[in-house]
Amino acid sequence: MYLSNQSLLVILFVGLVAGWLAGKIVRGTGFGIIGDIVIGILGALIASLLFPKIGIHLGTGVLSAIFYSVLGAIILLFVVRLARSGGRF
């Protein structure tokens, strides 16, 4: 698979927006800009694997990718927060 510079920038932008939005929704301490990008990209991977298997399809395009990524990042942040706090909020 070949990624152009433009598609890499789109992936990073979507990851940044998704990580930032998920951090605001979950109201965590934040992970910085690099951490937010990583959380957003991992959230997108989680969402792209999990949602189609349970039958959730929300459309196509950048806004749909951001929405999927935000939902996946929120799930990831909840799991990280549960792991850090020993299973309780």
Score class of each variant (00 low, 15 high):
L50Q: 05
I46Q: 00
T60I: 10
R88Q: 10
V10W: 15
L16W: 09
A47C: 01
G32Y: 01
T29I: 08
R27V: 00
L3E: 08
F67Y: 03
S85T: 06
G32A: 02
G43N: 03
L12T: 02
R84A: 04
S69M: 03
L63G: 14
A22C: 11
G55W: 08
R88S: 10
F13N: 12
I75Q: 10
W20H: 08
L49V: 01
F31T: 09
V38K: 07
L58V: 13
V38P: 00
G19M: 07
S85G: 09
M1V: 09
L42V: 08
V10E: 05
T29C: 03
L9T: 04
P52L: 01
F67W: 11
G55Q: 12
F13G: 15
L9D: 12
I33C: 04
S85E: 14
L71M: 11
A83F: 15
K24F: 01
I46Y: 01
I37C: 00
Y2V: 15
L3C: 13
L9A: 09
A47V: 07
F51Q: 00
L16E: 11
I46L: 12
G59C: 09
V14L: 06
Q6R: 15
F89R: 06
Y68A: 05
H57P: 01
V17W: 06
T60E: 14
L8G: 04
R88D: 12
R84E: 02
L49K: 06
L50C: 04
S48R: 10
I46D: 02
Y68L: 13
A47N: 07
L49C: 00
G30E: 06
Y68H: 14
G59Y: 08
R84L: 14
R81A: 02
S64W: 13
L16Y: 11
